[in-house]
Amino acid sequence: MTAQFVLPTLVAVALVCSMSLIDWRLHPRVALPVLSAAMFIAAAGLLVVLAGAATGFVLGPARSSSLLEWCRAIPLHHQVHPAAGVAALSALAVVGWRGAAVLRARRHAIGSVDADSRISVIDSDDPVAHAIPTRTGCVVVSTGLLSALAPAERRAVFAHERAHLHLGHHRYILLAELCVAAVPLMRPLADQLRHATERAADETAAAHVDDRTTVARAIGAVVLGPEMTGVPGLGGGSIPRRVEALLWPEREKLASRHVSALAVGIALTAGVAFGVQIHHFGELLDHLCNSTT
């Protein structure tokens, strides 16, 4: 496992992490596929390299024992230094742990509502409005949230959450969170993705209630209520920007075609680098297949 061997993945991860430094302001139509693809490429690239190093390290001693005959046939062109091997195994354990936490959270969220429930109103003063990605999709709101809003605003909230479900945003968010579990530096990209899903849902809600101001007012009424002010933001979905975009759509500063093309270009380049890395490992696998037949 020389540095050269893992170079393509390092390039891919570096490119995508550098994307994290920029607030791209991509249109949701572009943000959703491009950001999730970029994150996937970086995370998959890193995992492939870690798995390769860990496997090489583990197989090393196995080759010299008589227990695993077939292992002897694998030509390990790239010796894995024990330090690198241990580091790779540790990193994989950490990533696995973080990824399992994401999946566990998802299971809990889905398990918190009835499987066939499509709308669930809980008796609580706290403002709650979530879209739970069950098979049918469930919108959960609290009586506290409903009481803070006028009828038209309530319809806007329902429409917003329903839009998340119809547009399949939970898949993008799950993918993004799993990728961030592998490469924490990509958190800003996941936040930008989340913001894009919120803007898309806001626009759908605005079209549904036929009044952008109602959606903006609903956001304001929920967020500026006594429960929520002054609590550190959990990231994702810039609320002031959402309200501004609803009230003054002509003012929204979205990425130009050139900037969008740049984002696509960086993601594609990272993709090519990832492809090269896969090709390297493909060769290893090829040897493995040939030598065991």
Binding site: V102, A105, H164, H170, L174, I219, V223, M228, S238, I239
Partner: peptide
């Protein structure tokens, strides 16, 4: 962790600056 992890909410909490 749960909210951050996988759910779409209508809004999340905001900082006092954002408020």
């Amino acid at each position: 962790g749960d909210r951050q992890a996988v759910l779409s909410s209508f809004v999340d909490a905001l900082t006092s600056a954002e408020a």
